[in-house]
Design a protein around this nucleic acid. Structure first.
Length: 843
RNA sequence: GGGCGGAUGGCGAAACGGCAAACGCAGCAGACUUAAAAUCUGCCGGGGCAACCCUUGUGGGUUCGACUCCCACUCCGCCCACCA
């Protein structure tokens, strides 16, 4: 009977998410609900998303995979009583924004504000709880003034310098790039192959911090894979550096090796093609060939040069080097498998014990004397390089030692003899920061013919980016700013004479290396931030974004933070305490049917949050983003899935909305007395178990199982309602379950939660309501199902009261007819009892 | 070439070393509908009439007990890659 009524009501009670979501978003905004509290009596929580570069394509549902979970976490912490800082801003300076404006034949000054407005609209549509009063934009003078200020800080501390070196040049973007921005020999933005170009460039001396950047990874709670990528990128290696005198010259070539144990096996030496010694030592008869080789290796693209498929080639210089440990003369080659930028740009080559040297030696018929005998070596020449351990042979007084000890002994001996010294090398290079592009913060330096390089005084900041119509790069290695005389010509801050401004701008990664600090004090016009505010809010407690920034932004930001620490500006050495990387969202590739690729505008497979919010609602989209898979997992998008989440929210809505007047506001005072019925007891138990489960899961970023737990609770509320409807309303246990469900759901589906919150007669917003507390006693089951196994196979299940003794459990298990049957008359040799869980009879 | 992940129903997935497949999607059957949608109920890894047997990429090991731990292999994904 009552079910018929319910069904009729259900056609009337409609989950009208469109009006619900619109209404609550308006109220939140009118009440300025998400403004960060200034009260310092409560613990703070700083939850931050990687700030995005606003693209004209807008957000896709793929982008929501980090914004939604971090929003859930922040809302949850707010309900736990923390002061939450959850800001958003725009990484608006830099190549991506500029390239996009060029492509659309517009100007970044016009496009950026449009795109920002669209992103903001979409974020609000999703109900993200950002405090917009702290919004920042890295392309505005109020912001980049301080980026320039930090440049000067680095400059004053000797950490910013100008130097001419072969740099990574992207011919398409017409600018140089940092090493971190070159992926597989190509530009990370446009994919064009990188060329080497000699230009005077500005660098940040990040190498000076290599050891600390490596060491302090111990202090942060980050995914191991990201820490490892940074470790590899920094690439610390310990070895020995020594000079090899060059026969017939006053000069010597300095080499670095991590395998000093093989030093007696050197049969040739190699210089990088760009090495300055090449021109000096090449003999007359070899000159033409060597010059041709050097030219050729300079022409070859980075991508080809790095390929390991390519056969290693080189060219003999005609000169010989002397191995200082045994006086042996070895030929010196030029080869592009040796890089000028690493170590000393020159190596000793030991073909028997290095695969690259082995290949090279074979090609040019060079000897490969064995000095580390593999275990069980037959004395014959090796068929491939032996790079593992072994016993040292043909190594003077070190012969007979294990190579691992020999390495130490030789290093000691070389130091004593003054031949060489221990040395640590890093693969990390200094960070190339200048860009020959318009859309960035101008580097605040003036070049004066009298005083030289002069920093712009702080009080003259910002050095404003000139407002011009044509900003496209000239492509000749100069910045577009160099073509604007009004910008270039200035007076020297030191002597007042005529001088010229630096015309390069800073790469976008300078802006993003400190923005997280600015959110603590976003409108300060006297300093980048107030130290007191930064001390309260920082470091960032939770940082959420993609793994693609592992060795770019995340490394640079750590470096700047350490510089600030050294300068006494901040009291911490690591900016981001806990880091989480979301998984990608895949979608079908329209060009390859059946193939899934990353969802992106360039693949023409984007689904927007706008269309999903229109069709299913922002709450359903939020819940689906959480439910679809574990947070870190890459997963395909499916519209069927979001429909399921919509149905779930619909059920939540109806179970409350269809029972007006059933809610007992004061359920707390009576709820524990009603637990006489088994259904009521079961529902109360489930309610408290769900509080525990959802709380733990959110803390662990296991949002998918948190949603599943809420679905289970909802299902059980329906079971309860179906068993009891028409009997006992108003009902305290139902009220407890419903209020708890609303609150646990609030961080995930905040609009619906607030609607239901109001419907049950509660005041205010779920955002500021306290998080439910679990009563472990209520959550505890009083009857347990114990699994009974025989030899590890499930044979029976028995129901017992919680607290049944182990002896009793053993007795009950042995009594079971099915256990007896499985034993087939054999005696139980051993019985394992896991209290509250299982009994395993071994027989 | 090196490193790091991963592999469980038709699909996304769940499972402190202790009932494999929770939760959801898709599917099937039914109820309500003139009908459809929505909603509700039931079924939903494989085999077998059944009791029962089999099933977490492959092969081994540890354990009373292994999706889980260890070793080897296969496949997939991501990252790095001539770094001396």
């Amino acid at each position: 009977m009552s079910s018929v009524n319910t069904r009729q009501e259900s056609t009337v009670v409609k989950y009208d998410f469109r009006s619900i979501e619109k209404r609550w978003q308006e109220r939140w905004r009118a009440d300025d609900l998400f403004r960060t509290p200034e009260d310092r009596s409560r613990p703070k929580f700083y939850g931050l998303d990687f700030f995005p570069y606003p693209s004209g394509d807008g957000l896709s549902v793929g982008h929501c995979r980090n914004y939604v979970p971090s929003d859930v976490f922040c809302r949850y912490r707010r309900m736990r009583g923390d002061n939450v800082l959850h800001p958003m801003g725009w990484d608006a300076f830099g190549l991506p924004a500029e390239n996009e404006a060029i492509r659309r034949k517009s100007h970044p000054k016009k496009t950026v504000p449009q795109y920002v407005a669209n992103y903001k609209r979409q974020m609000n549509l999703l109900g993200l709880s950002y405090d917009w009063s702290r919004e920042i934009n890295s392309s505005e003078p109020e912001y980049y003034r301080w980026t320039q200020w930090f440049f000067l800080l680095l400059y004053r501390r000797g950490l910013a310098y100008r130097s001419a070196a072969p740099a990574n040049w992207c011919p398409s973007c017409a600018t140089v790039l940092a090493n971190e921005e070159v992926h597989d020999g190509a530009c990370w933005r446009c994919g064009t192959d990188i060329e080497k170009k000699d230009l005077p460039q500005w660098f940040f001396r990040i190498t000076e911090y290599a050891d600390r950047l490596l060491e302090d990874l111990k202090l942060v709670d980050w995914p191991e894979s990201i820490k490892l990528m940074q470790t590899n990128w920094i690439g610390r290696s310990v070895g020995v550096e020594f000079d090899m005198p060059i026969k017939g010259h006053d000069a010597s070539m300095r080499v670095f090796t991590t395998r000093v144990d093989t030093v007696f096996g050197v049969s040739f030496a190699v210089l990088a093609p760009e090495h300055p010694l090449v021109a000096q030592i090449t003999t007359a008869d070899r000159r033409a060939e060597v010059e041709e080789y050097v030219r050729k290796s300079r022409r070859i693209s980075e991508i080809d040069r790095m390929s390991t498929e390519r056969e290693r080639d080189g060219c003999f210089t005609g000169a010989y080097a002397i191995n200082p440990v045994n006086g042996q003369e070895v030929p010196i080659y030029v080869a592009d498998y040796v890089l000028l930028s690493y170590g000393t740009g020159a190596i000793m080559a030991v073909p028997a014990h290095d695969t690259r040297d082995f290949d090279f030696a074979r090609r040019y018929g060079l000897p490969a004397p064995v000095v580390i005998a593999p275990d069980g070596w037959d004395g014959q020449p090796l068929k491939e390089a032996h790079t593992g351990e072994g016993t040292m042979v043909n190594s003077g007084q070190f012969s007979g030692m294990r190579n691992t000890e020999g390495a130490e002994a030789i290093a000691d001996w070389m130091q004593e003899q003054g031949i060489g010294e221990r040395r640590v090398n890093y693969r990390l290079r200094d960070w190339l920061i200048s860009r020959q592009r318009y859309w960035g913060a101008p580097i605040p330096i003036v070049h004066c013919p009298v005083c030289g390089e002069v920093p712009v005084p702080e009080e003259q900041l910002p050095v404003l980016l000139p407002d011009v119509e044509n900003y496209e790069p000239p492509g000749d290695g100069r910045s577009p700013l160099a073509t604007i005389p009004e910008f270039v010509n200035t007076s020297c801050p030191a002597c007042g004479g005529p001088a010229q401004r630096e015309t390069d701008t800073m790469g976008g990664f300078a802006c993003s290396s400190w923005y997280f600090l600015r959110f603590a004090d976003p409108h300060n016009d006297r300093a980048p931030f107030d130290r007191d505010k930064v001390e309260y809010w920082l470091p960032v407690d939770l940082y959420v974004g993609g793994a693609e920034h592992a060795v770019m932004h995340l490394l640079y930001a750590r470096f700047w933070t350490k510089v600030m620490y050294d300068a006494g500006l901040v009291p911490f050495v690591e900016p981001f305490t806990r880091l989480k990387n979301q998984g990608m969202l895949l979608a079908p590739d329209p060009k390859n049917p059946g193939v899934l690729v990353k969802m992106s505008k360039s693949k023409f497979n984007v689904v927007t949050p706008d269309e999903m919010a229109e069709k299913y609602g922002a709450d359903a989209l939020r819940v689906y983003e959480l439910f679809v898979a574990p947070f870190e997992d890459t997963v395909p998008w499916s519209e069927d899935g979001i429909n399921g989440c919509w149905r779930f929210l619909n059920r939540v809505y109806r179970v409350v909305a269809e029972r007006p007047g059933s809610f007992v506001p004061d359920w707390r005072s009576t709820v524990r007395q009603e637990t006489v019925s088994n259904e009521a007891k079961a529902l109360a138990r489930k309610t408290h178990q769900t509080i525990m489960k959802v709380t733990r899961d959110i803390e662990d970023f296991a949002f998918n199982t948190a949603v599943a737990a809420l679905m289970e609770l909802t299902n059980q509320i329906y079971d309860f309602v179906n068993a009891k409807d028409g009997l006992h309303y108003p009902c305290p246990v139902w009220s407890e379950a419903v209020e708890t469900l609303i609150l646990l759901l609030a961080p995930m589906a905040p609009h619906l939660a607030d609607e239901l919150w109001q419907m049950i007669g509660r005041e205010g917003y779920t955002y500021s309501a306290p998080w439910p507390e679990a009563d472990p006693e209520v959550a505890k089951a009083d009857v347990l199902t114990i699994v009974v196994q025989v030899n590890g196979k499930v044979r029976d299940k028995i129901s017992v009261d919680a607290g049944t003794s182990e002896a009793e459990l053993e007795r009950l298990a042995l009594e079971s007819p099915r256990v007896q049957g499985a034993l087939q008359g054999r005696p139980a040799r051993k019985v394992i009892v896991v209290p509250g869980r299982l009994v395993n009879v071994v027989g």
